[in-house]
Amino acid sequence: MGRKKGRNRRPRVQSKIPEPAVVASSSAPPPPWIELPRDVTANILQRLGPEAILRSAQQVCSTWWKVCKDPSLWRVIDFSNTMQIDWYTMYNVMCRRAVYRSQGQLVDLTIQNFGDDELIEYIADR
Rank of each mutant, 00 (worst) to 15 (best):
M1G: 13
G2Q: 10
G2P: 15
G6Y: 11
G6D: 05
N8R: 07
R9Q: 08
R9H: 11
R10I: 14
R12S: 08
Q14D: 06
Q14V: 13
S15Q: 13
K16D: 06
K16E: 08
I17F: 12
P18D: 06
P18G: 04
E19A: 10
E19L: 15
P20T: 03
A21G: 06
A24T: 03
S25T: 01
S25K: 13
S26K: 06
S27A: 14
A28L: 11
P29N: 06
P32T: 05
I34F: 12
P37E: 15
R38P: 09
R38M: 13
R38L: 12
R38I: 09
D39V: 03
D39H: 12
D39Q: 10
V40K: 04
T41I: 05
I44V: 15
Q46K: 13
Q46E: 14
R47F: 09
L48I: 00
G49M: 07
P50T: 03
P50Y: 06
P50K: 05
E51F: 05
A52M: 12
I53H: 06
I53T: 00
I53Y: 13
I53Q: 09
L54T: 04
R55V: 13
R55Q: 07
S56C: 05
S56H: 07
S56P: 04
A57R: 02
Q58W: 09
Q58V: 03
Q59S: 08
S62C: 08
S62Q: 08
T63D: 09
T63S: 11
T63Y: 14
W64P: 02
W64V: 02
V67S: 01
V67D: 02
K69N: 09
P71G: 01
L73N: 00
W74M: 08
W74G: 07
R75A: 01
R75I: 03
V76W: 04
V76P: 01
V76S: 06
I77K: 00
I77C: 03
D78Q: 04
S80V: 02
M83P: 01
M83T: 12
Q84M: 07
I85G: 09
W87I: 01
T89Y: 15
Y91H: 12
Y91I: 00
N92E: 07
N92P: 01
N92T: 07
M94A: 10
M94Y: 15
M94G: 08
C95N: 02
C95A: 12
C95H: 03
R96M: 14
R97D: 10
A98G: 04
V99E: 01
V99W: 02
V99P: 00
Y100W: 12
Y100A: 15
R101H: 14
S102T: 03
Q103C: 09
Q103N: 13
G104Y: 01
Q105C: 07
L106D: 01
L106A: 04
V107L: 06
V107Q: 09
D108L: 14
N113W: 07
N113F: 10
F114T: 00
G115W: 02
G115K: 00
G115I: 03
D116Y: 02
D116L: 06
D117T: 09
D117E: 11
Y122M: 08
I123Y: 12
I123S: 04
I123R: 11
I123W: 09
A124K: 11
R126H: 14
